[in-house]
Design a protein around this nucleic acid. Structure first.
Length: 280
DNA sequence: CTGAGATCCTGGGGGC
DNA sequence: TGCCCCCAGGATCTCA
């Protein structure tokens, strides 16, 4: 049994992709069930028909999207949004289904993959080809863990942006993968206030921020993701990154670096945590 | 194209 | 204790 719970940002999705690759590569989907058709882009009927009989050839990720390459050239896109979880288990006939499980893939091996989602923000989508799948992801910017996310690229993104740096980091159209938790952590590491206008960052601040993105994500992937409330990786272990969160969720507590009380402000409708004295 | 704001959905916290 | 109200939160869609 694997039970993947998360507030999934890039490191969590990467962890899930890696684990699924080990666990379900080669599985054949014999059928699909859903009680939440709105959660399937393109419609339930085509999706269910389209995945039936397909073999899972490989699993990967782009930004926060999981990508499952199926036989016949099909590509399945899975987005967990805030509360989406994937649970791999043996089918247990007669077992009561959790009320938050909205989609189930049945495999020939007797295992099932459940998609559970309390908030019902997540989505499934099946595309007919790699090119078509890329069309679905065309609004996403460079993946922040990819080789293409260079300092020069980051520089281009910052130039001319009137948005606050915190919002820019989370804008998936500009760069894909960062969410609310890591955006706060990255800015703390870089010593930059989340309220700063993106274009106002100096060359050295840009360099520090870019490096912080790379370092923090790499570390988080190594630690198998953040454990905010009940994150579990595919082996059921808690993500360990929680223990090193410096500012996220720590409003009112003291900064580990200078002792100042950590602030919380809403920026772009998102709770944002930072140290007013370490971050300028 | 960019940025701001509404929207989706439900558990849970606050107020009484 | 229980009920009601309302908010959080990622990404997409719409609008200016």
């Amino acid at each position: 049994v694997i039970d993947i719970k998360s507030m999934p940002e890039l490191p969590e999705v990467e962890t899930i992709a890696r684990d699924l690759r080990k666990k379900i590569k080669g599985e054949v989907i014999t059928s699909f069930w859903s009680d939440w058709k709105k959660g399937i882009r393109g419609g339930y009927v085509d999706f269910a028909r389209g995945v039936k009989g397909r073999k899972i050839l490989d699993i990967g990720r782009f930004g926060k999207n999981l990508m499952l390459w199926l036989s016949g050239g099909r590509v399945m896109l899975v987005h967990l949004r805030m509360t989406g979880k994937l649970i791999l288990r043996r089918a247990m006939p007669g077992a009561k289904r959790d009320k938050h499980v909205h989609h189930i893939f049945y495999f020939r091996s007797g295992k099932i993959l459940e998609f559970s989602d309390v908030r019902k923000f997540g989505s499934l989508e099946l595309r007919r080809s790699q090119a078509s799948a890329q069309g679905s992801l065309k609004n996403l910017g460079t993946d922040v863990l990819s080789d293409g996310f260079t300092l020069e690229k980051f520089d281009d993104i910052l130039n001319g942006s009137k948005a606050k740096i915190k919002q820019l980091l989370m804008d998936q159209r500009k760069m894909a993968g960062l969410g609310n938790i890591y955006a706060s952590e990255i800015l703390f590491r870089a010593g930059i206030s989340p309220l700063r206008k993106a274009h106002s960052l100096t060359r050295s601040e840009r360099k520090k921020t870019h490096q912080a993105i790379k370092d923090i994500l790499k570390k988080a992937v190594e630690m198998r993701g953040t454990s905010i409330s009940d994150y579990r990786d595919a082996s059921g272990r808690r993500g360990a990154f929680q223990r090193v969160l410096a500012v996220y969720g720590r409003a009112g507590k003291s900064c580990s670096h200078c002792g100042t009380i950590i602030s919380r402000e809403v920026i772009g409708q998102r709770g944002t945590f930072f140290c007013k004295s370490c971050q300028k």
